[in-house]
Design a protein around this nucleic acid. Structure first.
Lengths: 338, 338
DNA sequence: TTGAAAGCGCTAACAC
DNA sequence: GTGTTAGCGCTTTCAA
């Protein structure tokens, strides 16, 4: 590998016949430089193809101009057919791009990678860290925050850390309650649910919403737990069907699981929504294309990403207006499946 | 924001009662340190929660231990329902994780972001750069390579750069020829194609394969060009149908476009494969679940990612065994649609 | 085996 | 306005 010498400030300074400080000023856009000198410097920069060494710059400024987004999941999970993470990333990208910050995406599905990420952040590789989908009571956000590293989470943290971390979340419970009420409204009474993983707020809150609405109506709960994947939706639906072959509706805590449930129901000979009404949660594009199109609780995932990124930008820029919590609304989208 | 002072080598050295050099040796796993001293240092590191400052380290080592993967697409394209990029990323992740390198993902769909990426790489933020899906004759890979930055591409570069960049690709033409021959074998004679974008090797080569096979059989070409998205597949299928309502087969250059074509054909009242046989290219998971399941040319996308990452690791480690080009095989997977 | 010292390339006081 | 200077935190000769 031919690592051609990259020109330094020093080289540019010599060529332009000025001091390093002056070159630095020009490169960083200081206005207190005479036009003639500025042009000379710019020309030297051009001729030499000079690009500032980021390590040297970071060493003195203590800034890297990049922000990490941690996805505590394996890469295969992040990039499965579940469109959740992609949507978050998209939202984050848009905001960071606008602020000219570099996004550093990190998957941390294993304990080892979880550690790598921790060291990475602590090594000052990034100016701030955003977390996308947290499992259990992950100590990492709090730990980083305690070190003075700006941290933001998407999804309300499960345990209130001693040092509270700003977060953005959606109104899970409101959305689910609306969904269940809709099922009640169309005359369903044997309403089951496929819940999400119970080590995540999204899984817990959506189950709470279901329970709340069912108690309100004086009906019996019927719960199977999945892990947000299509496959787990299939399995869970089979269990629910085995337990209560006469169920007439199911609220499923994610669209991917709902697609699995749809398939399982069809395989079991049920008509949708004739025999069983199905409602999902997410509103992915494929949910409009499924057979039948899926009624679902829409959550603004891209907006979550954008909001989280804006909170982060507020923190790293030391602006005071960073809200400790933002809760975005959800909305029931009625299609053919319920 | 409370940026608590992070401990430095100096602090650890003082606490352990040794010199900075010794701490550095311990931290970097040098064997030439007395056991007693080593333990004392490790204890001090532990107590202080010391993590080396990466900027300082990079400044002297000229290494960052991270590798960029550039996706010359917008974030919304990368994270659409097209599973191509996710699969590449997955393959890359696996290898980089194993080598303990940090993956830095960069989307560069706009000219502005293209520039950002260039400066980022030139600023020495990463030890090497991988490109995922190139459009046209992008000068960036060659430019970076000329600066001595290790570069690898997935997809054969469109113009042979003066400084050749190692790449990995798949056997597009072989796969497409097999697909068309299969169509011929089941008696189809009015075989159209929906081609991919003609500014990408994958688009060009697959069209070449189609043309080759059709000429071989002495049949007339029938081409519509899409951009690999489902939507473009729908449009292209409509055009083909308008031009030749009697076509009895279509080879589609990507699974996403093939799904669009399937939908367009059904909307036009064609039965599949009865009236029109359809073959795609990719073999995404959803292609097994479509109606009917899609016959397709499987390309090993995850392996492309892995291979590209391994080539990169070879380059940054100055190992000599980096092949200039790797071409992975493709394979026709026959399902119900053809 | 350990320490002293030089310096990676840059920014930011501070002086002029 | 511009130059001088002092580090940022680390690795790595070179001596001891």
């Amino acid at each position: 590998m031919v690592t051609r010498e990259r020109p330094t400030l020093e080289a540019v300074a010599r060529r332009a016949g000025v001091s390093r400080a002056t070159v630095s000023r020009v490169v960083n856009g200081s206005t207190t430089v005479a036009v003639g000198i500025r042009d000379a410097v710019n020309q030297a920069v051009e001729e030499l193809g000079y690009v500032p060494n980021q390590a040297a710059r970071s060493l003195v400024t203590q800034r890297t101009e990049s922000i990490a987004l941690i996805l505590p999941e394996t890469a295969s999970r992040v990039f499965s057919d579940d469109m959740f993470f992609p949507a978050v990333i998209r939202g984050v990208s848009v905001e960071l791009e606008a602020a000219d910050k570099q996004l550093v995406l990190m998957m941390a599905g294993s304990a080892a990678s979880h550690d790598r990420v921790e060291r990475y952040a602590m090594a000052g590789h990034v100016d701030g860290v955003m977390f996308a989908s947290m499992h259990g009571a992950d100590p990492l956000p709090g730990a980083l925050a305690r070190l003075g590293i700006p941290v933001v989470c998407s999804g309300r943290p499960m345990t209130p850390a001693e040092l509270p971390v700003p977060y953005v979340d959606v109104d899970h419970i409101g959305g689910v309650v609306a969904a269940v009420r809709h099922l009640l409204g169309i005359g369903r009474r044997r309403i089951a649910t496929i819940a999400g993983p119970q080590d995540m707020i999204a899984g817990i809150d959506r189950l709470t919403g279901y329970r709340t609405a069912l108690q309100e109506a004086g009906l019996t709960e019927h719960v199977a737990v999945g892990d947000f994947t299509r496959e787990s939706g299939i399995q869970a639906m089979h269990r629910l069907l085995a337990d209560d072959p006469g169920l007439d509706a199911v609220f499923v805590a994610s669209d991917m699981m709902a697609h699995g449930a749809l398939q399982a129901l069809k395989d079991a000979g049920r008509r949708i929504p004739g025999d069983v009404a199905v409602i999902g949660f997410d509103d992915f594009e494929i949910s409009r294309l499924s057979d039948p199109p899926l009624t679902t609780v829409r959550q603004p995932i891209v907006d979550m990403g954008r909001t989280m990124a804006r909170q982060m930008l507020g923190l790293v820029d030391d602006r005071a207006d960073v809200p400790a919590a933002v809760v975005l609304p959800t909305e029931l989208v009625v299609r053919a499946s319920a």
